[in-house]
Amino acid sequence: MNVVDVQLGLEERVMRTTRTTIAFAYPARFKGIDETFPAGTYELETDEEVSEMGDQTVYRRVRTLLLVKTLGQVRTVDVKPSELDAAIDRDAVQAAAG
């Protein structure tokens, strides 16, 4: 995971944004999004709210964006973390099945 930045939000919330990549071996679908994404590698951008809980720091995902590159353009698709996890699991099951 690569930490991109830490910023102070308007409501005095500390946020961090991380960028990672994810690869789908099979086309991916996400509940609530009427589109199928082709197999391939995608960048993810995740915003997390940083909270101090006693002597430990806790990060809570507040937004995950899938960066979709098509025809020389990049657009972002807001994906629920639970839907992203489900798509990753489906891809792994399909890959294991052959």
Results as ranks from 00 to 15, higher is better:
1 M>K: 09
1 M>S: 09
2 N>G: 05
4 V>R: 06
6 V>G: 05
6 V>W: 08
6 V>Y: 15
6 V>P: 04
7 Q>F: 09
7 Q>M: 04
7 Q>I: 07
8 L>V: 14
9 G>A: 08
11 E>H: 10
11 E>F: 10
11 E>Q: 15
12 E>Y: 06
12 E>D: 15
12 E>Q: 10
12 E>M: 11
13 R>C: 04
13 R>V: 13
13 R>L: 04
15 M>I: 00
15 M>V: 02
15 M>Y: 12
17 T>M: 01
17 T>I: 01
18 T>N: 06
21 T>N: 08
21 T>G: 11
21 T>Y: 00
22 I>V: 09
22 I>W: 00
24 F>P: 00
25 A>Y: 01
27 P>A: 07
28 A>P: 02
30 F>H: 09
30 F>I: 00
30 F>R: 00
31 K>V: 08
31 K>Q: 13
33 I>D: 01
35 E>P: 01
36 T>R: 06
36 T>Q: 05
38 P>R: 10
38 P>I: 00
39 A>D: 12
39 A>F: 00
39 A>I: 06
39 A>R: 13
39 A>P: 05
40 G>E: 02
41 T>Q: 13
41 T>P: 04
41 T>K: 05
42 Y>S: 08
42 Y>D: 03
43 E>L: 07
43 E>D: 03
43 E>G: 01
44 L>T: 01
44 L>C: 02
46 T>W: 01
46 T>V: 02
48 E>F: 05
48 E>K: 05
49 E>K: 06
51 S>M: 09
51 S>P: 07
52 E>M: 09
52 E>F: 15
52 E>L: 15
52 E>V: 15
52 E>Y: 12
52 E>H: 14
53 M>K: 13
53 M>T: 14
54 G>D: 10
54 G>R: 02
55 D>S: 12
55 D>I: 06
56 Q>V: 10
56 Q>W: 08
57 T>I: 15
58 V>W: 12
58 V>R: 08
58 V>T: 13
59 Y>D: 01
60 R>T: 14
60 R>P: 00
63 R>K: 15
65 L>N: 09
66 L>P: 02
67 L>W: 07
68 V>E: 07
68 V>H: 13
68 V>P: 14
70 T>A: 15
71 L>C: 04
72 G>T: 13
72 G>W: 03
73 Q>W: 10
73 Q>A: 09
73 Q>N: 14
73 Q>E: 15
73 Q>T: 11
74 V>T: 15
75 R>K: 13
76 T>C: 05
78 D>G: 03
78 D>V: 10
78 D>R: 09
79 V>N: 11
79 V>A: 03
79 V>I: 15
79 V>Q: 06
79 V>M: 09
80 K>P: 10
80 K>Q: 13
81 P>Y: 04
83 E>P: 06
84 L>Q: 06
84 L>K: 08
85 D>M: 04
88 I>E: 07
88 I>L: 04
90 R>L: 11
92 A>V: 05
93 V>S: 12
93 V>F: 07
94 Q>V: 00
94 Q>N: 07
95 A>D: 05
96 A>Y: 11
96 A>N: 11
97 A>E: 14
97 A>H: 14
97 A>Y: 07
98 G>C: 01
98 G>T: 03
